[in-house]
């Protein structure tokens, strides 16, 4: 018994002192050895240590998918997608997981898709670049004695970029205001009203990605799924946030 305790303590201390690279390596080895539960634990310990690289979210989602935990896999892929929406692997695996769940993939309008082509951080960086460029152009236009009109005209470009990045940022902000969620319990029924007695509207498969459109203080959330709206209990959902 003593020996077991000592070994357990050593394992704990080994985990506590492992560097992120070592933990990541351990997780990958566990994944390759089809020991998915252990891989999930290793990736989760990285997240618990405050690591927020999208590779961790993505690999964790892969491990959860392999472990058969579909809702949390979809949650992980979507979290990774928030960080890099133009990563082909993330998009492909998210679609694959949604298909495996028998869920409909969100079909946002073309403008939303265009605005989510860049992540929130990328829009911020673009906006910052446009802001600095605009400042440099304006300073030059003010201080140079010639070519002022041309410089002012060129300023339209960073102004346009600023507006575009602001719109992109706002689009991502809408995911904070009306967050997405993953259905965590199979056979969840969306109802016409926020009560247990309300009439059933449609069924939601486990792992379906829904968007919140309203909420009530009694723990019910109105969600949109496949162009339909219905009320679902919050306890049936895993919330997402960019």
């Amino acid at each position: 018994m003593k020996l077991i305790l000592i070994l357990f303590g050593m394992m704990l201390s080994a985990c506590a002192w492992a560097t992120p690279d070592e933990l990541f390596q351990q997780a990958q080895q566990a994944y390759d050895a089809e020991n998915y539960e252990q891989a999930v634990e290793a990736y989760e310990s990285l997240l618990a240590a405050g690591i927020s690289n999208l590779e961790v979210y993505y690999n964790l989602a892969n491990a959860r998918f392999r472990a058969g935990d579909l809702p949390e896999a979809v949650q992980g892929y979507r979290n990774a997608w928030y960080r890099n929406p133009h990563d082909a692997d993330i998009s492909a695996n998210l679609k694959y997981a949604l298909n495996a769940a028998g869920a409909v993939e969100p079909a946002p309008p073309i403008i939303t898709r265009a605005l989510t082509a860049l992540s929130s951080q990328e829009w911020m960086r673009l906006g910052l670049g446009a802001y600095i460029l605009l400042a440099v152009l304006l300073i030059s236009a003010f201080l140079l004695r010639s070519g002022r009109n041309v410089l002012f005209r060129i300023c339209l470009l960073p102004v346009g970029l600023l507006l575009l990045s602001g719109t992109g940022w706002w689009q991502w902000n809408s995911y904070t205001l009306r967050p997405e969620a993953v259905v965590s319990i199979g056979g969840t029924t969306a109802r016409f009203g926020p009560t247990d007695g309300a009439t059933s509207h449609f069924k939601l498969p486990e792992g379906a990605l829904v968007r919140e459109t309203g909420k009530q203080a009694n723990g019910w959330k109105e969600v949109k799924y496949d162009a339909k709206h219905g009320w679902v209990k919050q306890e049936n959902l895993l919330l997402l946030s960019p």
Binding site: N59, F65, A88, K95, V104, A227
Partner: peptide, 30 residues
């Protein structure tokens, strides 16, 4: 996988499995 809008549907071959793990990042973000 169904893609695009809810009105216009099309199907697309996605592949036979999920894409493999990503390598460790060059820099860890906290």
């Amino acid at each position: 996988a169904p893609v695009d809008t809810a009105l216009v549907r099309e199907t697309r071959v996605l592949g036979h499995d999920i894409a493999y793990l990503k390598p460790a990042p060059e820099q860890w973000t906290q």
